[in-house]
Amino acid sequence: MKPSIRPLAFSVLGIVTALVIWQVLAEARVAGNALPSATTVFANLASTLGLGSFWSSLASTIGIALLALALSAVAGIVIGLLVGSFESVRYATLAVLEFLKPVPPIVILPLAVLVLGPTVEMSLFLVVFGCLLPIVMQTVDGVQSTDPVARDTARSYGMGEGEILARVVLPSAMPYIGTALRVAAPAALVVTVVAGLLGGGPGLGQSIYQAQAAGDYAGLYGLVIVLGLLGLLFQGATRVAERRVLHWHESYREVVP
């Protein structure tokens, strides 16, 4: 066996083994009806793929996650530039940001559901709440790390404050912002699902809740598999996007031998 094939072969072997174990456990009925067999789940999933309701749930999950991500990115970068540029603003917000940062959006979910109801707005609000702060804090770090020599050089070339911000500070903060967005994109998907599952917002989270409540275990497992693939897709897509947008930056440049 060629060495380059070996990892791939073992990966396939690993996946097949996991599926076989699953099938055997389900056939042995270790958990009664609660653990459907792999074949049942995939057959059920295949028939679900033909339903319009599945695709509209999938579309609203992706739509909410992306829209909220875009909103948090724009607001987060603007706030981050503002906070990072003025020392007094940074000190004023430090304690509040540090307190709010480790508080996940699920904590304020009851409040959001109470005020906004099980709506798209509720989901959007929760996702923005979850994604905004990390983007703000990374942008602030990025602004802080701007090379003072580059800033002074720009000033001595007669650039105004606005121009320096747009052409020196923002580009040098870009890798930080890129990292923040790469972390925020999968998180946006997770929060969208949480908002649906616990708050009744539209999307796949709600479908999971309904499947669980109705005892449709095959449907439940199928939806979780779809979410796993969707999560992989989000992670992969953001990594590619980050490389593309930041290809000029030294930490992303490819070394040509």
Partner: peptide, 8 residues
């Protein structure tokens, strides 16, 4: 498995 939202 990591791609699955933990809450799901």
């Amino acid at each position: 498995l990591r791609g699955i939202p933990p809450v799901a």
